[in-house]
Amino acid sequence: MDKGIGFKSYCWSIGTTSYRTDNFNLSIEKQLQLLKQFRELKENKNKEWNGNNEFQAEYYNFLKENGFLKGEAARPDKDAREKTSGLRDIGLLDDERNITESGLELLKIASLNDFSSDNFLEISKDSYLYFKQMLKTSNFIEGKEVRPFVVFLYLINELEYLTNDEFTYLLPLCIDEHTTKDIISSIKRHRKLPVYYK
């Protein structure tokens, strides 16, 4: 492996582990609808999200009152940020947690219950919207814009598959053209090594 690739605890980050949930698509759509309702309340119009812990806690309580959450959070403001960060990262919300055009389009698909597959990939409309959002999703790492899903597709195209370890430990190191090419060549070399059994 190239000595220029330094250790990182992680390189890519989208959302939080709070999105390890059942009925993922449905949860996103329900939360977007609730956030829309919350933002439309007279007292919430034009309120800033960033740095406003009280407003964030109010959103958490609104989710709870509407059956989206259960239990008592030690830090409701933090939980509210966790619940919305992934939606912001994939472009369904802006930094102030207002619904974007893509988020509104997803709500429209859900409200019309129109999950037809009228696109070139022949997947449901909501999945197609998520696919397009993932193509646009990016992280800034060491001053470079990295599009994780695009990099993943590139590696799959070059290597045909990734093992769990390659996906977990090597893929997130691909933060520019140089490291990506090094990772690909290292994986190819490693795969050619003989396997020794005890």
Rank of each mutant, 00 (worst) to 15 (best):
D182A: 14
L129F: 05
N61I: 06
I187V: 02
N113T: 06
L135S: 07
F140W: 12
E105C: 06
S116N: 15
F120D: 15
Q33H: 14
P172H: 05
K108Q: 08
E160S: 14
L153I: 08
E48T: 09
D2Q: 06
E158S: 07
S111G: 09
G4Q: 15
F62A: 02
K47Q: 00
P194D: 02
L26V: 13
Y154K: 12
F7S: 11
F38Y: 04
K198Y: 12
I175K: 05
K125I: 08
T84F: 07
E142Y: 11
K30R: 10
I90W: 04
S138H: 07
N164P: 10
S186Q: 14
G4H: 15
N66T: 01
K70C: 09
T180R: 05
M134C: 11
P172A: 02
I175V: 06
N50Y: 12
E160T: 11
D94H: 04
D2L: 06
Y154G: 07
K78Q: 13
I184L: 04
L162K: 06
G91E: 02
L173H: 11
K45E: 01
K198P: 13
D118L: 10
N50R: 14
N44R: 00
T168P: 08
L173Y: 11
A74D: 15
S127T: 12
T16D: 03
R20S: 08
I109D: 01
R39G: 00
C174Q: 04
N139P: 01
R81G: 04
G51R: 05
L162V: 03
E65T: 00
F62M: 01
P148I: 04
L35E: 01
H190T: 15
G91R: 04
K64M: 02
E82N: 13
S111H: 09
N46A: 06
R97N: 03
E54T: 11
F131P: 08
G103Q: 05
F120G: 09
T179W: 10
L106M: 05
I184H: 02
D126E: 09
L107S: 04
N164R: 12
K42V: 00
L173E: 12
L135H: 10
K70M: 09
K3Q: 14
L92D: 01
F24R: 11
A74H: 14
M134D: 10
K47C: 01
Y19T: 13
